[in-house]
Computed example of a mutant assay.
Amino acid sequence: MRITDLLKQDTAILDLQAQGKEAVIDELIAKLNEGGRLADSQAFREAIMLRESHSTTGLGDGVAIPRCS
């Protein structure tokens, strides 16, 4: 899967409501799931959180690219 497969208008959130890392990740996962991009949102969340436990995917200035693998 390529990041361009996920970055589509129907899965973009321009007014993110969540605050805090886990809440933000949950909101993003919910949006991807609503857009039909995830086969198993819980497994996806677990993989994302495992990756985050190794090191942050934050780039700075409020920008991050949460991912697994």
Rank of each mutant, 00 (worst) to 15 (best):
E46W: 01
A43C: 08
A39H: 10
A30T: 09
L50G: 07
K31T: 06
D5Q: 09
A43R: 07
D10I: 00
L50T: 15
Q42I: 05
I29F: 07
R51Y: 12
D61I: 08
G36N: 09
D15E: 11
S55W: 11
T11K: 00
L14P: 07
A47Q: 13
R67Y: 14
L28I: 14
L6Q: 01
A43V: 08
R37W: 00
T4F: 12
D40N: 14
L38G: 05
A12I: 13
R2H: 12
G58Y: 02
R2A: 12
M1D: 10
I65P: 00
T56E: 11
E34L: 05
H54V: 15
I3P: 09
H54N: 08
V24P: 00
L28C: 12
I3E: 10
L50Q: 15
F44K: 06
R45Y: 03
I25Y: 06
Q42S: 08
K31C: 09
K8N: 14
T4M: 11
E52A: 02
A64N: 06
L6F: 15
S41P: 12
P66N: 02
P66D: 04
C68E: 12
D5E: 15
A12P: 00
C68L: 12
D15R: 06
D40Y: 01
T11I: 02
A12H: 11
G20S: 09
D10C: 04
L59R: 05
A39C: 07
R51M: 06
A47K: 15
A47S: 15
S53V: 01
A43E: 10
L32D: 01
D10H: 00
H54W: 09
Q42P: 05
I13P: 07
A12N: 03
R37K: 14
A30W: 00
G20Q: 03
H54L: 13
L59T: 09
D5N: 13
L38S: 08
E46N: 13
A64R: 01
G60D: 08
K21Y: 09
T4C: 10
A18W: 13
A39S: 13
M1A: 10
S53Q: 04
K31S: 01
T57S: 15
A47F: 01
M49Q: 04
A23G: 07
C68D: 13
V63A: 10
G62K: 02
L28S: 04
F44Q: 01
L32E: 01
L32R: 01
D10A: 00
L38H: 04
R2K: 13
E34S: 06
A47C: 06
K8H: 05
E34D: 14
A47M: 14
L7K: 09
S41C: 13
I65D: 00
A18N: 07
S53G: 00
L14C: 09
E34V: 02
L6T: 04
I25H: 04
Q17H: 11
H54K: 14
L7G: 08
A23I: 04
H54G: 09
L28F: 05
K21I: 04
A12M: 15
T4G: 10
I3F: 08
G58C: 10
L28Y: 03
M1Q: 11
R37M: 10
L32K: 06
G20F: 09
L7D: 05
R67A: 14
I3C: 10
K31F: 03
